Computed example of a mutant assay.
Amino acid sequence: MKTRLIKTTLAAALALCAANSYATQNVTVYTAFETDLLAKYKNAFENDNPDISIKWVRDSTGIMTAKLLAEKNNPRAEVVWGLAGSSMALLKTEGILKTYTPKGLAALDPSLNDPQADQAWFGNDAFFNAICFNDIVAEQYNLPLPTSWDDLTKPVYKGHIAMPNPASSGTGYMQVSAWLQNMGEGKAWNYMTELDKNISHYTHSGSKPCVQAGMGEVAIGISMASRGTKLKTQGAPLTLVTPEGIGWESEAVGLVKDNAAAKRVVDWSVSKQANELYIEVYPVVGHKDVHKEVKNFPNVKPVMAKMDFARMGDQRAQVLKTWSEKFDSKSEPRS
């Protein structure tokens, strides 16, 4: 009886030790990835790393960047995964991101990564803007298909255009930055003033203008090309237009807290397996060996704006201050 009791106690102790050895560790990951992608990325990572669980904290790029800056002295994130390169450059300058060399770095496209020698962020994919044009609404209002940015300032489009507020949306900020960097500041601000005359409203989400165009709430949404592609594939009556100088950014990963579990999240996020998930939505990804044509995605490479991500990060506060003073009155209320 005594021997049996000892064996039972020993078995219970071993089972408890085994359970504890496989207890999952939570890693808090701040992101601006589209909401419908989060479960897919989390499940794939946790399938390969059953001892680590991702705890997502998600918001739009502008809001997530502001949150990280506000928490600078008491960071709550351990990893930032899926945030615009310009924001990552700013976070690095502010000392929020740690210098780190992930496993598999040599397989990544360097043009999407931190260009400085002490690298702290690495591109998962490149995301692009597009003009989402609702063919049915356009026919109702006799609106011609725009083919250039200047076309959008024509009086015929008055009240028919939505675009993201750059202060709360990285999608909006990258297009404003593309105009500023490629038109020159004076011409770009004049352009945005003329465009504002035709704007119905500014959204706080980068994908929302295209969603609204797809639903017929507006005729035109300056928005995420990936969202327009998805909606078009699902049957929305959209034509995607990519004028010369279309805004784009690297969507990147970086380390906030220097611990082993957080490093494993960063390592996995730049892996070939992770990039094979990114390519399902984005036509340009960080891994050199991952390529795939994305159905209905416009040909963006010939019209990509020249983008300086470090400059975008450095000038962000002043650009957003100026933009908000000029145009914020048309922004939708924050939910």
Rank of each mutant, 00 (worst) to 15 (best):
G85C: 01
M88S: 12
K295C: 01
A44Y: 00
K55C: 00
A130V: 06
P115R: 06
N124D: 10
V211C: 06
A19K: 12
Y30F: 14
M304A: 07
S60L: 06
Q181S: 06
V27H: 09
V256K: 02
C17V: 15
F33H: 00
H287E: 03
A236L: 05
L180F: 02
L277P: 00
S21K: 15
K55M: 03
K197M: 05
G95H: 07
V303T: 14
N49F: 14
Y100M: 13
F297P: 00
E249M: 11
A138K: 04
L90K: 12
N198A: 06
T65E: 10
G216L: 05
K7V: 13
K288T: 07
G228K: 08
N124Q: 14
D314T: 15
P302W: 09
L195C: 06
L37T: 10
K292R: 11
S269H: 00
A77W: 02
W323E: 12
S335W: 04
G206W: 03
Q116H: 14
D308E: 08
Y100P: 15
N73A: 06
Y22S: 15
W268L: 02
A260V: 09
K103W: 03
T242H: 09
K7S: 14
W149A: 07
G245M: 05
H287M: 04
D267V: 09
Y278L: 01
D125F: 13
K208H: 11
L68T: 08
N47V: 12
L10K: 09
I161S: 03
D48I: 12
P110C: 13
P155A: 04
E78V: 09
E139P: 01
Y100A: 15
N275L: 06
I96Q: 00
A39Q: 13
S21D: 13
D196G: 05
G172W: 00
P144I: 10
E94M: 09
R316H: 15
Y30G: 02
K288I: 04
Q119G: 14
Q318D: 14
K103M: 05
S21G: 08
L143W: 07
E71Q: 08
L255W: 09
N198P: 03
L108I: 14
A77C: 07
Q116I: 11
D196R: 05
D258L: 01
E249K: 14
V218C: 08
Q25I: 13
D114P: 05
W323S: 09
